[in-house]
Structures are given as structure tokens and as C-alpha cells.
Design a protein around this nucleic acid. Structure first.
Length: 426
RNA sequence: GGAGAAGUACUCAAGUGGUGAAGAGGACGGUUUGCUAAACCGUUAGUGGGGGCAACUCCAGCGAGGGUUCAAAUCCCUCCUUCUCCGCCA
């Protein structure tokens, strides 16, 4: 949610920033309705003040035995006017919320305009390995080593699902443990949230109402709307929803491992064969509630942490700063870590690290109180995958494969796998 | 799943139709004090919104949303949450 006061005062600037996303928004009609709404509020509140005063007279008059009939008549009319005014105001407010709630965040000043094509690689780690044999696709590698079972995944749940089996399950679990330990070492608080969330949670995160069709909806017996979280971010933002924190509580750094569920409707073709896009995947998510003046540094910290995790695995990746049009609706600035997948001849996202500014905080009413003067302010929220394990596994398989189809286990993971160094085909 | 009870401030809690929503604890400030403690005095219904250059002022707000009424914490309806008992259960 954007700040309505900011829009009132800087409509052209807001429109210019949204234009960087390729959106053209004209605020003039919105602003006209806004001032009409406020004018109506003003008159209606004055009527209410009058009603309150005159109502208070009634018990007095009754006590004195005076006739109140004409005053009651007057108040009846007054109340009717107030009631119908309130209804109009309500309607105007709802309309305004729909409009404002549908607008994405303003991209940060240092984010360039344009779509994917304007993304910029800001860092590269390692390099593309040259193979002295014909490298295999991760589906073949993971199947022949018995790490992933696609056929049974389809049998159990349909297309887009798989099972981690044998060494695959152990490697996936080792990745999760490696990430968890790294975040704990950095002083982040570990959280295990529910996987089913309510509508308000999705709204605060900025996923609803726009992206309702991307999630799995669950109807429980009580008939209340719930959905399977598409990322732990959705749960973690809501950790502090409708709360006022003390300034000393910030930054609040936390992380969670969860499975993530997405519909991913439609086919993405042979290029994404395998585990690049499933309906269920594993991810460890980092999150921060931060003071506005600290959020830029917090973003750097999260990017740093995500990079360090991939580097610890010794995998080749590139860090990409996204252009405005490629940034998620709730975010003002995003860096993606893209890992090299040889079989695709390209790079695939394993982490997306973003600063949402006050956008989510405003939707979720997440605030803190300044020590200095007791003023209450929206905090900033930041999130980043650290990392999406289910996409790291294919990268390990492909980047670390050997001519005989075996896969070298990254050193940092070996302690989590009983010292196993090499996974061989069955 | 069945039955019952309850939701008012940081906490406990009074308030069943009529201007300012008791009281206590806590917290904060002050007086007294060599220090601590104690006593006494004071402040503390968050918050959101409207108007005003401003001092200030008005409106909403008693779990949420509707309704009745000139007037709702209070009466009615729907929902949410928590607790107790029973059943089921990793």
C-alpha cells in the first residue's frame, strides 16, 4: 500500500516512479474523489458533534419534565442524514482502498526503468565449467543416482510433483541444515510458521487480491478461506501484523524453513524439465523488520548472506539487480541470485532478496515507536531466500557431475551427510 | 465433533441504555530523602481519521462486522478468538 499523504502531495512524482514499471497511472480522478470524501467527512463529523450535544440534553429535559418530542424529531432527521452520509463515505473509502491496494510499490530511485532485458549483472562468482565429457541433464543425473523419483511423484500427486529419495533426500536435508546453521550463526531467530494462512495474511504480504490464482486454496470444515503459503515470507511478514514494536526491537531478524506451494499454472516447456518449477519446493527464507533509515544496509546484509551461502557450496552464479518492471509488486528494490544450470545453458533464480520499504508494513499495520519522541512509524520489511534448496540441488548435480554420472557432494554439506563425499549412480 | 463460559488500557478489573468509560496494580514524572525503601501528589483508554499556520479542536474506537435507538461497552444478529469439561487424536 502506498502512502496516501505522499500521493496527495506528489502525484506527478508517484506517477513517474510507477512509469518505470511500465504502468501509466493518472491520479487526478483519485485526488478529486479524495478531497470530496474528506469534505463530506468534515460536514458529517460536524453533524455528529451537534447530535452528541443535543442528545445529551434529553435526559436533562426529561428530568425537568419538559416535552422532548420536537427535539427528538429534529434528532431523528439529523441521524438519518448522518447515516446516509456515513454510507457514502464508506463506499468512497472502499473504492479508494481498492485503487490504492491495487497499486504496486514505487521502485527505489537507483532502480532502472524497463523489464527483464534491463536487468543488470552486478557480480559473478566462479565460472562456467568446461566439461571434457558430454554433461548430463539433472533429471538424468538425479534419476540414475536414485535421488529423485519423478514417476512416483506423478503417481502420488500428478505432474509437477516429485519425491526426494535416498541420497537426494539426504542432500536436500543437508542443504536445509547448512542454511539453518548459517542463519543461526548470524544471530537470526528461527521460526516455524503454520503452512496454512488466512486471507489477511496474504493481503498484508501484497499477494492478494491480485495473485489469488497463483496459490492453493484450502477450504476446511469451518469454511474459512485459507491458503498454502507460496513462500515463508508470507508468514513472516505477518509475524508482526497489527503490532507496535519498541524501537529497541528493531531490527528483528528471523528466518524460517518451509515447504512452499505454488500453482504454476500452464506448461513451461522442455527447457524447464525437472525440478526448476514444481508445485511444492523447499526454501529457507530470511526476513527483517527494520527501521526505515536502516533498510538499505539491511538489504545489503541479506544479499551478502545469500551470496555467501552459494559461495560456500562452491557453485557458479551471478548476482542480478532487477529493473523496475521485473520487481515483484510489493517490492521497491530486488536482487536475484541466479545459479548456473549447464543443461539450460543459462542461469536460474535460487534467491530473490528484496526491500519492500513500508509497502507491506502499511498493508499489515506493522509499526514501531521512536524512543526519542514516542512517535509511531511504519517499519520497513525485507526478505530474501536463503536459499531455495530445491533449485540448488539441480545446480549441484549438474555443476558437480563427473563423467561416470556421479556427483561430488560440496564440502560444507558433508558433515550433514555422515561424511559422504560422492554420490554414485545406482 | 458435543456442551458451557468469557473477550473493556501494559496487567487485573467495575460498568446492562443517557454529558467526561470506575478502581487497583504496574509504568512514568514530581515532592520528601545522605542512599535505598516507604509515604504522598500527579500522569498514563492505546490508536486511527477529519479541520486548523498554530495553540487547539472535532469524529470514530470497549474482540470484528451488521442491526435497533434521538442516544449502545450495555439490547438483538452473524462471525472471530481464548478458556473449561467431554469425545477423538500425533
Amino acid at each position: 500500500m502506498l502512502d496516501i499523504v505522499y500521493i496527495r502531495n506528489n502525484p506527478e512524482e508517484a506517477a513517474a516512479k510507477l512509469a518505470k514499471r511500465g504502468l501509466s497511472v493518472d491520479f487526478s480522478e483519485f485526488l478529486e474523489k479524495d478531497s470530496a470524501r474528506r469534505a463530506l467527512m468534515h460536514t458529517t463529523e460536524n453533524l455528529k458533534a451537534e447530535r452528541n450535544k443535543k442528545s445529551a440534553l434529553i435526559p436533562k429535559l426529561k428530568k425537568e419534565g419538559q416535552d422532548t418530542a420536537s427535539l427528538l424529531d429534529e434528532l431523528k432527521t439529523l441521524s438519518n442524514t448522518i447515516h446516509s452520509n456515513d454510507e457514502s463515505i464508506d463506499e468512497m473509502q472502499k473504492e479508494q482502498e481498492v485503487f490504492l491496494g491495487g497499486l504496486p510499490n514505487l521502485p527505489a530511485d537507483d532502480v532502472v526503468a524497463g523489464g527483464k532485458e534491463a536487468n543488470e549483472v552486478v557480480k559473478t562468482f566462479g565460472e562456467q565449467r568446461t566439461f571434457d565429457f558430454e554433461p548430463k541433464h539433472h533429471v538424468d543425473l538425479l534419476t540414475s543416482t536414485g535421488m529423485i523419483d519423478y514417476e512416483r511423484g506423478a503417481k502420488l500427486s500428478g505432474s509437477g510433483y516429485w519425491l526426494y529419495t535416498g541420497m537426494g533426500a539426504r542432500l536436500e536435508w543437508a542443504l536445509i541444515n547448512y542454511f539453518v546453521d548459517a542463519h543461526l550463526a548470524d544471530g537470526y531467530e528461527m521460526v516455524m510458521p503454520p503452512y496454512l494462512l488466512n486471507y489477511e495474511a496474504g493481503y498484508a504480504a501484497g499477494q492478494f487480491p491480485k495473485f489469488l490464482e497463483d496459490i492453493f486454496e484450502i477450504r476446511s470444515n469451518d469454511d474459512n478461506f485459507r491458503f498454502l503459503l507460496p513462500t515463508a515470507e508470507t508468514a513472516l511478514v505477518n509475524f508482526r501484523r497489527d503490532e507496535i514494536m519498541a524501537e529497541a526491537d528493531l531490527p528483528h531478524k528471523l528466518f524460517a524453513y518451509t515447504a512452499c506451494f505454488r500453482r504454476e499454472a500452464g506448461s513451461h516447456g522442455a527447457n524447464e524439465r525437472g525440478m526448476i518449477r514444481g508445485h511444492q519446493f523447499n526454501k529457507v527464507e530470511m526476513f527483517q523488520f527494520a527501521k526505515p533509515e536502516d533498510s538499505e544496509n539491511a538489504l545489503d546484509e541479506l544479499v551478502q548472506k545469500a551470496c555467501a551461502l552459494v559461495e560456500g557450496l562452491g557453485l557458479h552464479y551471478q548476482l542480478v539487480k532487477l529493473a523496475a518492471g521485473d520487481i515483484g509488486a510489493a517490492m521497491k528494490k530486488t536482487y536475484d541470485i541466479e545459479i548456473w544450470i549447464p543443461s539450460m545453458g543459462g542461469y536460474k533464480e535460487v534467491s530473490s532478496v528484496s526491500n519492500a520499504g513500508a509497502y507491506q508494513a502499511r498493508r499489515g499495520n506493522i509499526r514501531f515507536r521512536r524512543d526519542e519522541d514516542g512517535r509511531i512509524e511504519f517499519c520497513h520489511t525485507l526478505n530474501g531466500s536463503g536459499l531455495a534448496t530445491s533449485r540448488v540441488l539441480p545446480a549441484i548435480a549438474e555443476q558437480n557431475q563427473q563423467a561416470d554420472g556421479s556427483i561430488i557432494v560440496p564440502e560444507v554439506l558433508r558433515p550433514y551427510m555422515g561424511g559422504i563425499e560422492l554420490i554414485r549412480p545406482l
